[in-house]
């Protein structure tokens, strides 16, 4: 930090015109950056405002703990969707996270450059596939397979897990590869010098060193999974019921919002905004966790540096 010196960017030996230009550009960049902040704030304020009648008309407790959702009867309990989102996300993580982390280890530790240059773009390309295409793939290919294996129509958590776990691989794999690559080469060399094999080096040295970064990656992957809408909507069956088996249709917060928003009105719409607010809080909590962990890690490494 200290070597960057003159941080305010004031130019001393240039003309006034240049200074004005620099200032104007700085302002422009600030405005661009501020748009994001403003957007987040406005969206949250809007969602919260739209959801606020919930407190008086449904009651927060009934809303959060009610297990029945029926628009016809004006009963809005979101436990089925909270649970649905949780089940779908957890399953996707259980399948997808190991897949992605092992991919990243392979890319960063094992693969030769030529292999890496094929696999890495392929993984990155996965992130570029629109989610409706994943959903389509799920409906046309995965759901019939699941139906053949387990009966029913093939819509449910299992199909959702399979599709979502593929979708979160690029997020987790690229981020955790970054984490692995940031581990200094010297650590690996030291490990090899001690006579450790490659597997021992990866398992005992590199992975523990990159632990925080990898957990970050998994948490962000979780955020992606919980917020995923279109693909999930197409494959989970959207039945507002509690978990009834991996092959029985369930619904999630996101898919229910999409299904409801086009026609909802009154209390129903309020409930949908309430669900949106909860999604917002969940992803905020996830981002916050990542931040806190990063800060913790920084503090720890600083302490270590001091000790040394």
């Amino acid at each position: 930090m200290s070597d960057s010196g003159n941080k305010t960017g004031k130019l001393v030996m240039v003309s006034r015109a240049t200074q004005v230009k620099e200032a104007a550009l700085a302002t422009l960049f600030f405005i661009c950056a501020f748009v994001a902040v403003l957007a987040v704030f406005l969206i949250f304020a809007f969602v919260a405002w739209k959801a606020s009648p919930l407190f008086s008309q449904i009651g927060l407790w009934d809303f959060l703990t009610g297990t029945q959702w029926s628009v016809e009867d004006n009963i809005y309990g979101i436990v089925p969707f909270l649970l649905g989102s949780l089940i779908v996300t957890a399953g996707a993580l259980i399948i997808g996270a190991p897949l992605a982390v092992l991919t990243s280890v392979f890319l960063s530790e094992i693969a030769k450059p030529r292999v890496r240059n094929i696999i890495r773009p392929a993984v990155e390309l996965l992130a570029g596939i629109p989610s409706v295409v994943y959903g389509f793939f799920g409906v046309v290919v995965v759901a019939p397979l699941v139906a053949r294996a387990g009966g029913g129509a093939g819509f449910g958590p299992l199909t959702g897990w399979i599709i979502l776990s593929i979708m979160i691989v690029p997020t987790i794999a690229t981020l955790s590869e970054d984490a692995l690559k940031s581990i200094p080469m010297g650590i690996r060399e030291a490990s090899f010098a001690m006579g450790a094999t490659q597997w021992q080096t990866i398992y005992k040295v590199v992975l523990p060193a990159a632990k925080i970064g990898i957990i970050d990656a998994v948490i962000l992957g979780m955020g992606r999974a919980i917020g995923e809408t279109m693909a999930v909507l197409m494959v989970v069956g959207n039945a507002p019921q509690l978990f009834a088996g991996i092959n029985a249709p369930i619904s999630t917060l996101t898919s229910q919002i999409v299904l409801g928003m086009s026609y909802s009105s009154g209390l129903h719409r309020t409930a949908l905004f309430g669900m949106a607010a909860i999604l917002f809080l969940i992803s905020m909590a996830l981002v916050l966790t990542v931040r806190l962990m990063a800060r913790d890690q920084k503090r720890k490494t600083k302490k270590k540096d001091k000790r040394l």
């Binding site: 029913g152 093939g154 039945a239």
Partner: peptide, 21 residues
Amino acid sequence: IDAVVLPGTGQVREVVTRTPG
């Protein structure tokens, strides 16, 4: 509420086509 909910006529048809029950 156990029913699969699909957001389109085409999808309902498609699923019935391939699901015996």
